[in-house]
Simulated assay, not measured.
Amino acid sequence: MFTTLVFHEIRPLTEIQAGMRPIQVADGYADSLPLPLYNDLDSFSAQIDYLIAQQYHFLTLAEVIDFYAGKFNMPEKSVLLTFDDCYQSQLRYAYPILQQRHLTAVSFVPTGWIFQKPTAYAPEVSRPVSFPELLGMADVFTYANHTHHFHQRKGTTASRAMWEKEKAFIADLKACNQFVPVKDVFAYPFGLYDEKNVTTLAKENFKLAFTTIKGMNLKDTNPLELRRNVVPAQLPLAVFKEILGEKE
């Protein structure tokens, strides 16, 4: 049994309090990142330090794959740290904290969103990093598939992978895999997916896929529908402990 945490934007609370802001991505897709997907810098630091103090084992994707293949005994207190979308705040704020503590995490990359060249941090938008900056964070982050141009949605119920034909979805998966080193692990954009998407990933030999459904991951959890828990800003420590499955 293990918990997976998912983060998007890690920012100082003053930036979060400025309100929702638009995304600004390389392929021009227009959207805004909902405020519940932001976590404040102070809380993030405290949560990471809590996990260290409580001697949690920080999982790798290889260990999770081996767990579901029956080749890895999961430590009792295990957590997988994941980040979605590779925003500039991941580099500016999250990366130094994890690097200083000698931790590793997973970053799901919508490669069509990533810029060719670095630009200055822009607090007024949610802007992804550049490919050179991804390389610069590779000592902390393991990069996996989050689609190439399919990180798009219609409302809160459908992602592009759900309305496109399977052939197009497969082509997009392969396009993303040209840029990420881990080619058999996926995160559903916005957490939106259907059974056809699960079937396609299985046909394409993906070993793991992550949702944004809350909860713990058990031995009998479908590895192509793994649970992840969003950590919002100023989450009380008691609630964070509940997410981890800790009992009073």
Rank of each mutant, 00 (worst) to 15 (best):
F44Q: 10
Y50I: 05
L51W: 09
A175M: 13
E133L: 11
L237W: 01
Y68P: 15
A53V: 03
D31S: 14
M216D: 05
D194W: 06
G19I: 08
K203T: 04
C86M: 10
K196W: 00
M137E: 06
V140P: 10
E15I: 08
Q152L: 05
V125A: 08
G19P: 15
P236D: 14
E9H: 07
Y95R: 00
N222A: 07
E195M: 13
N177L: 03
L80H: 05
K219D: 06
A171F: 00
H148P: 04
V239R: 15
F206C: 00
P128C: 07
E248R: 13
T82D: 04
K207S: 10
P189S: 02
A62L: 12
S43M: 03
S107G: 08
N229G: 14
S159E: 01
H146A: 07
L218N: 14
V106A: 14
L224M: 10
I16M: 10
P123W: 04
F150T: 00
E166H: 00
Y93L: 11
K196C: 05
I65D: 01
N145Q: 04
T111I: 01
R21F: 11
T60L: 14
T156C: 07
Q100M: 09
Q234I: 04
E248N: 12
S159L: 02
F2N: 13
P181K: 02
Q47R: 11
A94W: 02
V125D: 04
Y38C: 12
K203S: 05
V106H: 04
P123M: 09
T200L: 07
A122M: 13
L81N: 08
Q47H: 15
D31N: 14
A238F: 09
F169E: 00
E195V: 12
G155W: 00
F190A: 12
G136E: 08
P232T: 14
A187F: 07
P128L: 05
L235D: 09
V239N: 14
T142D: 07
Y188P: 03
Q234P: 11
P110F: 08
A26R: 07
S107Y: 04
I114M: 10
R153G: 07
H8C: 11
P22W: 06
H57I: 01
T199V: 03
T211D: 05
K247R: 15
P96W: 02
F72N: 06
S126G: 10
E124A: 14
F179K: 00
V129C: 11
A171I: 02
P22Y: 06
R227W: 02
W113C: 15
F186Y: 15
T60C: 11
L5P: 13
K117F: 06
Q24K: 14
M1P: 11
V180F: 03
L134D: 03
E164H: 12
T199H: 01
D84P: 04
K241G: 12
K241W: 05
P36L: 08
N39Q: 13
L201W: 00
A105M: 10
Q88A: 12
Y38M: 01
T200M: 01
Y143R: 05
F7E: 03
V182D: 04
I52H: 00
T211L: 09
T119M: 14
A238V: 15
P22T: 03
I16G: 08
W113A: 15
Y193Q: 01
N197H: 00
V180G: 02
H148N: 15
Q90T: 11
L192V: 06
K196M: 05
R160E: 13
N229L: 10
K214Q: 14
V25P: 04
Q24V: 11
P189C: 03
H57N: 12
E9R: 13
Q47C: 09
K167Q: 11
R153E: 09
